[in-house]
Amino acid sequence: MPELMYREALNQALAEEMERDANVYLIGEEVGRYNGAFKVSQGLLDKFGSARIIDAPIAELGFTGLSVGAAMVGLRPVVEMMTWNFAILAMDQIVNNAAKLRHMSGGQLRCPIVFRGPGGAGGRLSSQHSQALEANYAHFPGLKVIAPATPADAKGMLKAAIRDENPVLMFEGERLYAIKGEVPEGEHVVPLGKADVKREGSDVTIITWSRMYYFCMQAAEELAKEGISAEVLDLRTLRPLDEEAILASVRKTNRAVIVEEGWGLAGVGASVVDIIQSKAFDDLDAPVERVTGLDVNMSYAANLENATQPDAPKIIAAVKKVLYREGA
């Protein structure tokens, strides 16, 4: 299987889907002649032309709403957000229109559209450019929210998102784009709404998604050296949550740690805890722990930035706490 970077996997998914379906177009800032702010759309303008790879003005609300309108009448737009921080300007069109069209029209309309771009901390960019915002959107019925961690999932889930009949929001990561992994060629579609056990274990379940996955894997390896067997469950989709997979893993390990880049209050992890406490309370041998971004704005200074985010040592400490190991 070929090794690809996360951004190349996305590029492949886009190219394949655009080849397969002429209703698919890509719009966003710098997606065309600049080949994408993070080079996800490298080479696509040459391949598909300027009506399908569209350099948009810096008008997030405008080009997002325009694309929602195009989706209402049969096209399948992919809207690239330069980063999700900027997509806050487009939130009205995503939340008030895309998520509600099916409902307001009583089932007459559908809105097959993908909004995608990097979320989370990019690295030394301070507070406006470093937000993990997926929890905001996971709140809204009418949307699907995905956040793949690996290149293979990035390709397979983008393909599934483009084929989905609903608005799908995809959270990538500036620090994920260069990560390499094996990616199946051609028709590789990963169904939305399904979590994936990325590492099997028996003592504790670490639940996560997106970039935090790599810290969790690192933590699991460290823990293995100490004889602790951690299962890593990659949620991949945040709306709808894969309850079955969460419960199955927790029922097996009886302990859970949830790792989330974003803030804890009203985070996705809070909902995961709720699922576990209401449906698997009797299976738990310890209270569920959460590792989240600190409840502060992200700083530029390297030490402050690092301290704000979850990392492997913090995850290891949380695991030891739910296992009642000394030193936790």
Partner: peptide, 12 residues
């Protein structure tokens, strides 16, 4: 809110 939608329908 409907103003951008209309441009998108015309775009289609």
């Amino acid at each position: 809110g409907q103003i951008p939608l209309a441009a998108g329908m015309a775009f289609a």
